[in-house]
């Protein structure tokens, strides 16, 4: 479904991605882990076309990302941003229905609202939330609204950028379970970026670890705890001792 080959991206002297190769088969959930500044978010932004890679190819369902019709290409994706990235000038239901009310095949306002309320219900929020503004919601509720927006147009591929950052462990567990349920239910292909190992275990089919701009380790989630790679071991154990410098 998603095939990334030899992806390079630099910002000035900082070479963030140095030849990343990743494949995510259709319907599978890949979790990308790695230290801060290893290029995880840049990888997602390159796939979405928000950043232009310096070299390499990105193919989605066999189609070259650079040559495809931008609107049709992006219509395949839903994304949950780290901070929610909800539009604070509009109420919750308009955030969720944003894509539904625009572009090809847009829905009428009442219809879009009904779909938005339905998606909010799917992520555990009642219809009374629909008319609130994002600033009136707690962090956990904002994540749920972001999730509802990501799935509103029923995309084939969903990206989750640090879905549990800033949440308490209980709320993080709820969001993890919700993500897993929704991805399985929709049969969507999912790529998640996280530092949270409980998210990795709850969401992933496969795990890829980015280090120094390359995929350092990749394998099934069951093998994460037994893999001998010293970089992966250090990351999973959260240890300051190991090949990854603690001060970067």
């Amino acid at each position: 479904m998603i095939e990334v080959r030899g992806l390079f991206k630099r910002f000035g002297a900082n070479e963030v991605l140095r030849g990343v190769d990743v494949t995510v088969p259709k319907g599978q959930s890949l979790v990308v882990i790695g230290g801060s500044g290893t290029g995880k978010s840049i990888l997602l932004k390159c796939i979405l076309g928000l950043e232009r890679p310096d070299a390499g190819t990105i193919r989605v369902a066999g189609e070259d990302a650079r040559r495809s019709d931008r609107e049709a290409y992006l219509a395949r994706f839903g994304m949950l941003f780290q901070g929610g990235a909800l539009f604070d000038s509009m109420p919750v239901w308009q955030n969720v229905a944003f894509r539904l009310m625009r572009g090809r095949g847009r829905l009428k306002r009442a219809e879009a609202r009904s779909v938005a309320v339905d998606k909010l219900r799917r992520v555990g929020l009642g219809p009374e939330v629909a008319d609130l503004y994002p600033a009136e919601l707690s962090g956990g509720m904002q994540k749920r609204v972001g999730l509802a927006r990501a799935i509103a147009a029923e995309p084939d591929i969903i990206f989750f950028d640090e879905p549990t950052t800033g949440l308490d462990p209980i709320m993080a567990g709820v969001i993890n379970d919700l993500i897993r349920e929704i991805v399985v239910e929709m049969g969507a292909t999912a790529v998640t970026i996280t530092h949270d190992m409980s998210s990795v275990r709850a969401i992933a089919d496969r795990v890829a670890m980015l280090h120094a701009g390359k995929v350092r380790w990749e394998g099934p989630v069951d093998e994460v705890d037994s893999a001998p790679d010293p970089y992966l071991r250090q990351f999973v154990e959260g240890s300051a001792d190991g090949p990854i410098p603690a001060v970067r």
Partner: peptide, 16 residues
Amino acid sequence: TMRVTEQIDALATLST
């Protein structure tokens, strides 16, 4: 503010 809170990236991913 929209730029730093990724709302502009969100717009782009929503085909806008």
